[in-house]
């Protein structure tokens, strides 16, 4: 009660003050120091700038936690050592499912003993191979549980290259830091490095809109599938006519289930 009362008094006091003191001297004040407007604008700018700095600079840093991969992995070294490129380790199983990150058993085929002098190699063999523990890799492109993605539909049937979505990961010599969204638990690669969500390359982001964008682009191609090649910029090699003529890129809005489970 008292506070309200005080406030009321304050307000009225101020009002009275304003009414009594400001009005007669109004003109003078304006002339002298441009009134309160200078301060008002100054503070506005301070608030504006500060919040921009927070929003664009600090916020992203706070939002994502940084995690190191358990083992620093050199893709270049491995790609050079295997024969079939990505598919040597990231292959399709018989049932058409995609193996994803290799299991320990696969690695052990070559890494039963420590090779070379890389400390990461030693750590890998000691901590994981010797103990038979799977390496808890952090998957940059890990989609949330609600997403169903068929690699085989894109790679085998759509003849897409891994790079299109994953970038040139095969050319990396070190594992980059894995950034995890503290709120959602997503990998940052899904939203994209750019906090505004802007992208330059097809592999910069992996949100639903990015899938949609690519699918929408394909929609624009001539309908008679047999007479392709598709005029699609990211298509690196000549389009191969599929066995069946029924190439259909999912573009319909009714196809939610195709990617969601």
């Amino acid at each position: 009660m008292s506070t309200l009362d005080d406030k009321a008094k304050e307000v009225s006091a101020e009002a009275v003050d304003e009414a009594e003191t400001e009005s007669p001297t109004e003109v003078n004040e304006k002339k002298q120091d441009n009134g309160p407007w200078g301060y008002i604008i100054l503070f506005f700018i301070i608030g504006f700038a500060a919040s921009l700095v927070i929003g664009w600079g600090i916020f992203p840093k706070v939002l994502y936690s940084q995690k190191k991969q358990p083992i620093d992995f050199n893709h270049v070294l491995h790609v050079a050592a295997v024969e079939e490129g990505c598919e040597s380790c990231h292959f399709f199983r018989e049932d058409g499912s995609f193996s994803g990150v290799p299991k320990l058993a696969q690695c052990v085929e070559c890494h039963e003993e420590v090779q070379g002098e890389d400390p990461n190699e030693a750590k890998f063999v000691e901590e994981y191979v010797a103990k038979g523990r799977e390496v808890p890799w952090l998957v940059y492109s890990k989609q949330p549980d609600c997403v169903f993605f068929s690699h085989i539909a894109h790679v085998n049937m759509g003849k897409m290259e891994c790079d299109t979505c994953h970038g040139h990961i095969g050319e990396s010599t070190h594992s980059k830091v894995y950034e995890e969204n503290r709120i959602t638990g997503y990998s940052r690669d899904i939203w994209g490095k750019n906090i505004a969500g802007l992208k330059k390359n097809t592999w910069d982001r992996m949100k639903m809109d990015d899938c949609a964008e690519c699918h929408a682009e394909n929609k624009a191609v001539p309908k008679t599938v047999e007479t392709l090649p598709w005029p699609i910029s990211w298509m690196p090699r000549p389009y191969e006519k599929p066995a069946s003529s029924q190439v259909r890129v999912q573009i319909d809005k009714d196809a939610c289930f195709v990617c969601h489970k």
Binding site: M208, D209, C211, A212, K253, C256
Partner: peptide
């Protein structure tokens, strides 16, 4: 209008 499911 750029939502995925949008079809004018």
């Amino acid at each position: 209008p750029f939502s995925f499911e949008w079809a004018w």
